[in-house]
Structure formats: C-alpha cells, structure tokens
Design a protein around this nucleic acid. Sequence first.
DNA 1: CTGAAAGCGCTTACAG
DNA 2: CTGAAAGCGCTTACAG
Lengths: 328, 328
Amino acid sequence: MTRRAPRQADIAALAGVSQATVSVVLGGNQGGVRMAEDTRLRVLAAAEKLGYVPDPVATRLASKRNHMLGLYTFKATFPTDVADSYYPILVGVEEQAAALGQDLILFTGADGRGERTHDEVAIRRTRIADGCLFFGRHVPVASIEKLVESDFPLVYIGRRDELEGRIPFVGADYVSASAAVVDQLASLGHRNVRYVRENDDAPSSTDRERGVVEAAAKAGIECRVVRDEVPVDEWLRDGVTAVVVEETDTGAAYAAVRAAIADIDLSYAVLGRPPEGGDEVTGFEVPRREMGRRAVELLVELITGDPRNLHQLLPCTPVPGTTVKDVR
Amino acid sequence: MTRRAPRQADIAALAGVSQATVSVVLGGNQGGVRMAEDTRLRVLAAAEKLGYVPDPVATRLASKRNHMLGLYTFKATFPTDVADSYYPILVGVEEQAAALGQDLILFTGADGRGERTHDEVAIRRTRIADGCLFFGRHVPVASIEKLVESDFPLVYIGRRDELEGRIPFVGADYVSASAAVVDQLASLGHRNVRYVRENDDAPSSTDRERGVVEAAAKAGIECRVVRDEVPVDEWLRDGVTAVVVEETDTGAAYAAVRAAIADIDLSYAVLGRPPEGGDEVTGFEVPRREMGRRAVELLVELITGDPRNLHQLLPCTPVPGTTVKDVR
DNA sequence: CTGAAAGCGCTTACAG
DNA sequence: CTGAAAGCGCTTACAG
C-alpha cells in the first residue's frame, strides 16, 4: 500500500502541463516567467490535491538550496555529562532556525557503525545542508579548511583563530568578562590571588586566562596561574586571599577548587557559572542561548550572501555574587 | 579560489573508464559485478590522486534511502520549561541514531515565518526523511492518519491508541508502575489515599490513573481521584493518610501538592520523579532514554521492512523513597 | 566480465 | 507566454 510520494511529474500529468512548468509555479516563479494565471491555479490545485511536498535532496542537487541548516558537534549533540552548557545553545539554535524557517539536521553517528570519526568524509557530509554550525572546543583544521576553501557556509559557535581568522564564529567575550571579575576582586582589596584553569588549550580557556592576567597586571595585583592543581596550603602560606577558577563544560576545575577550599575562609569566583545552583557564586553568565541564535543568524546571512560581521563576540552578564569578601 | 570538487567523471577520465565503472568500484561493488582487478586498482589510484569525496546529496538522490530520521515535536524540540523530561529522550534518540548511522532532521519552524502550525503541510514535510519520530501529549489525528495510510514509517514516543492502534509507538508502562506505587502504600498500611492528577487527558495520564485505581481496588483500599485541586483540610478530616500525585512535564500538580502539604504529616508519592532533586520521594523512574533509543530502533526496522513489535511498553524503575511512612 | 544508458526529482537556461 | 532539454552527481538495472 506504500503510495509513492507525489512528484512534480504527477502534478504535471494531472494539470496537463509540463513538469518544468510545475517547477516554475511551485518555485514561486523566481525567474519572473510569464505564466497564464489559469495554468498557475490548475498547477496549485493539483499540487494540493496530491499533497505534494518537494524532495529536499533533489532540490538541493538541482539548486544548491534546501533550507536546512546542519549542526555538527564534536561529541554527542545531546551529551549527558555536560548537558547544562550545551542545552541553552541548542535552545537558541532551534529558536532562531524556526524563526527563519530553517530545519535543522543533526549530524550524528553517520559512519554506519556508530563510531564518530571526524575525518574528512564525516565532515563533508554536512554539505547536505545549505550551511552548517560547528561546535566543539577543538577544530579538525584540515577538514574544516577544505570546507571553508570551497566556500561552504559555516559558522563556529565559540571563537576560533585557526586558519588565520577565516572561520566565521559567534563567541563570548571571555576576555572582558574575566577581566571584570578580577577588577571586582581588586576593588574589594584582594592583592594576591590565584587563577586555576584546566590543562586543555582552547580559545575559551586562553581568552579567560588572558582577561585574568591582563586585568591583574593593570590593577597591580599578583595573580599566578596554575593548571590542574589546587595547592591550598601553599596559598595560605603565601598570603593568597582569593582564588578564581575556570569554568569548562566538564566543571572539573571548579569541583576541585570547591572541594579544596570547603573548610577554608578564602574568597572565590568562577569564570562562568557553577554547574548547579550556586547563584551566590561570583562570576558571569555566558550568553549561550544568544550565541546559538546569533550563530544561526550569521549562517543564514552567509548562505544568502550578505554577512554583516563574520566574527562576533557577545558580552557576558556579570554575576556579582557573595563569595568574594571585602578584605580592605 | 573555489576549486570545484572532483567527481566521478573526473576519476573516470583519468583512469580511462566510464563514470559508472567508477561508481561501481568506489561503491564497494555492492552488486557483485565482476571487475578486472587491474581496472579496480586504476580507479582507486585515480580517486586517491584527485582526493575524491562522494557528494552525499547526489548519493542520496540516486539511492532511495537517505539515512535521515525525522524528529517532530509538537512544541519546541528543545523546550526551556520542560527540559528535564525531554532531554533524556533526545539523548536516547541521538545515541541510537548514531549507532545505526542515521542523521536526524529536527522539524522546527518550517513555515517560513517561525509560526509553528501543526497542519497537514507541516507534518507532511517529515517525508523528506526516511521515517519520522513523533513526540507530544496529543496527536493531530487527521494529519498523522494520512502519513500512516501512505505507509510512511513513523513511530510515536509514548503510547497512542488513536487510529485503532495503527500508530506504532514506544511508550512506558505507566499502568504497572503506578499500580506498584499504590501496592507499596497498601503494604505499609495506608487504607485511605487520594490521587491528584492534572486535568488534561493523554494516554500517559489515563494509564497512570488506571494503574492507581485498579491497584487500589485490588488491595481493597479507598483512593479517590481529584483533578487539579488539593483540598488538604478535607482530606485530613476524612482520615486520608497518603496522597499520590501525577507527574507531567510541567510538574504543576506535583508542585501544588508539595506546597499544600509542606507543613503536614502526610505520606506522599509521585508517579514519576519530582522535577529536581528529591531522590527520597517515592515513585518511579520513566525510562526516557531507553524510550528514545527503542523508538529509533523500531523506526529503522519499519524503514528496512521487518518490524518486530509495533507497540512497545517499557518498564519503569521503582524508586522506593522515604516519603511514604509505615502506618501499620 | 565490462561499459553505456536510464533514472533519482528537481532547477534553469533556452527554444519556440 | 509556455514547454522541452539539459544537467546537478550519483546508483542500478541492463545490454553486450
């Protein structure tokens, strides 16, 4: 009983015109072709009667456009471990895609064995969509470069500096946000602080560190950077009064710091938001949802051909919190 | 600089064979075509030399299947208000889709104005995938019926009884799980309880109520059902010792009950899990992730043609909890 | 055993 | 004003 989905040829037969005419009518007559109103109506009626829906694959092969945006993540799109940081981005992406009438293709497994291989083939698959959003701490440069060079529209969610800035992105301004946190520490009298970060270099980490280091230098306070360790006893000996910790999607550094200073009277702040609850923790809010929205916006601009700003950095919202004490 | 990507015709020219031969060689020779090893090697070498990667759009147009599964939700796919109940399902869906080498198309906006209209046209769009998952408390019967009648493979996430059982689904066995909760109450000596549910009829609600009512009858205990109200004073006068409350994605009923009995010594249980935390609350865990996984599995079976079980009900995991006191 | 033809469902340039 | 042809890059029957 599987009735084959109707195609333009079926409509053509029913309306008594050629398949090409059907295409012109249903395509909204982009070419400005002159067309008898009567023919147009007959075609439309036939299409409606048959319940016609264009085949997006054929549309794309013939025209280069199918109103689908890809979303390629370098881990699962719906990760279980870092849901908090991913989900808001997805919400924003979906919101804006819907607003612009675009469907979303999630590029999941795809190699047929469930193994996620980020090789060229897997990434080239994204070409099924009109353009693609990419999301992940790191970039498989070689594969992405081919895409970029072939002028395939793509946007990274998160700042990227690979390929000499040829990768369009929508990121968060971690430098300013991190600097603001250090400024707050300085204004409350802290002169000797530590910054704990994870040992994984990605722009989001580098930017945070840069903001911290620059702000500390400017304020004239000491701020050493430590990676993946929390030598609390040493800090206390050295007269440290506050610790700032990186937020990553795993939350590892933050968890380590919290555990280490649980029973100690030390001010602390996080460069982002703690994994759960913790409204009182000093830090800032990453505009994830807005990033998702803007990334879609930029991608569609890229597809339609008049992108405004290829590299966007969105401001984070400061969260004053109460975990940084006044030590003046 | 946009260099056209090499295609099979380019390889054919280089290897001195026809384009079709290239297709056969690169396609792994599925048809069991006999082929001179020498030709095969020449084609492979040429492909390698040109850095050939197949165009997925053309591949999918030529072969009937496109290895894309649709996901149609009747609200946003990534809702902000009910994220807790949706997200695990999405995780399961993605997981299994990846395992089976299927991409996912999220049907979001799609009418070009961002307005979500669940009319026939919107739902018909799902045909662009090989099959589609549907998810939502209610069913737009007419539209779904057309899909089902045309043998388009689709699976509902959640039990459905519309269309005389012709809608394939993967749901949760709320009847048994709810009955088990009442059994626990009975075994702890409760003889007079109340069941609070929301005033919205969907299979997941109906099933819970049925489980509660049947178990109460069987255990010989009194259990009145109330919709959308929590007359605590009346209950206390009537000698009620425990209250059972429905869990829905909004969590409205549960919140109302918790607020009403906050300062009262009344046992309570929830037919599901409370919105956040609350590990101690008696109830059960809905196997959402597994539902997502199995729904994908069933959908792919439907697509490939040999579905095992068109109507699956998965068991929920009981959560004993500590909010039901022993009143014996 | 191998290659050339037809076709997947569309769009777009081009005749009439 | 309208239709028929060519083509997007592949796969899969089908000749030889």
